[in-house]
Nucleic acid binder design. Structure first.
Lengths: 185, 185
DNA sequence: AGCTTAATGCAATTCCTTTGCGTTAAGAAA
DNA sequence: TTTCTTAACGCAAAGGAATTGCATTAAGCT
């Protein structure tokens, strides 16, 4: 079930959404991550469970919604002055964020079965950031990298390690991945 | 919760496991995939729900267990006579299997949060297959490829497209990924 | 064949989920 | 500002899933 567009976005509706999101974040400690229930969240947010079920459908969809909200970037990637260092800085931060317990959980929630439209939104954030870095490169007169190639050969291996093989992508590993895009001289 | 090792593997216990697995497969049509419940599976398998809860813990763990059982290879990858064609054939088959609705579901189940130890098992099948192909190459006197590199730059992009960006990895796309390992002459 | 106990079935209980209905308040219009 | 419409919420009842104690069955061992 997809979170439907609301015709009323102000006041109470917004307050409840905020309260529920806050409650989920508050209750989503790595330890309790798998045991939280909708009634628990409702109690912590000061609403009735039926409100959550009506707005979000089920727990998985709610978690995915919170995940997307957290993954949504609040700002553009850092401008380090050059495209290669921009990319290295962004990937380091990306790998570190996604490797954390909360990052792993967000990735899983964001790729969950029920989150139909959400997954694309979620991965489009990464695309947007990489596009921003290439645009910046063009503005500087640098040769931009190919976004899809970075997705395929830098982002994808990092995500694979986090989700599938459950290894932590180290900064050194990330560095070597980018070395394939920007070979060390 | 991890499926615990059973001290009794014969007779009834095995029959029930088989019946439950069969019931899950039977009920796991792409359409009904998200609505199946433990009581439904129990009824189809001719057991009581409490049996399933006791043995598997919850629905997600049961689905992961079935997924791992299905992903477990029944045979070694095809021997085409040369390492490059072995790899291309294996990757083509892998991408096709995982792209199907049932394959996607298996991948998701296999990488689910609750499936702690399972994910490694699941991805080790892929590692094993690739290792088999390299061993075969060595036996032929060919130079083997690096398994980790294939995981990072061929398997990972394919899985990323299936799980995250929700694009179907086409045979042509897979071919281009392997071209990076074995450049076209 | 007999023994031990893991695994299952049954049933009661608890908790989660769904749904109908009355109430509240957001957004539009007078 | 006031009034109106109705989306969204709270409450409570009903339905269904998950849990658990206890009796029963049968696997594996002697």
């Amino acid at each position: 079930m997809v979170v439907r567009e609301r015709v009323r976005v102000g006041g109470r509706s917004a307050r409840i959404q905020q309260a529920v999101h806050d409650a989920v974040r508050k209750l989503s400690t790595p330890a309790t991550r798998n045991q939280i229930t909708v009634p628990q969240i409702a109690a912590a947010a000061g609403v009735t469970p039926s409100t959550i079920y009506r707005r979000w459908g089920d727990l998985q969809t709610l978690l995915a919604d919170v995940a997307v909200a957290r993954l949504r970037p609040i700002s553009d990637p850092d401008d380090t002055g050059a495209v290669e260092t921009d990319l290295r800085a962004f990937i380091d931060q990306y790998a570190e964020e996604m490797s954390s317990p909360v990052g792993r959980a967000l990735l899983r929630d964001g790729t969950a079965e029920t989150a139909e439209g959400q997954t694309c939104i979620c991965c489009s954030f990464t695309n947007d950031h990489l596009a921003t870095i290439t645009e910046r490169a063009k503005a500087r007169g640098e040769t931009p990298f190919d976004v899809q190639e970075v997705i395929d050969h830098v982002v994808a291996p990092i995500v694979y390690r986090i989700l599938v093989s459950q290894e932590t992508p180290t900064p050194d590993y990330c560095r070597r991945l980018i070395d394939r895009i920007y070979p060390r001289t």
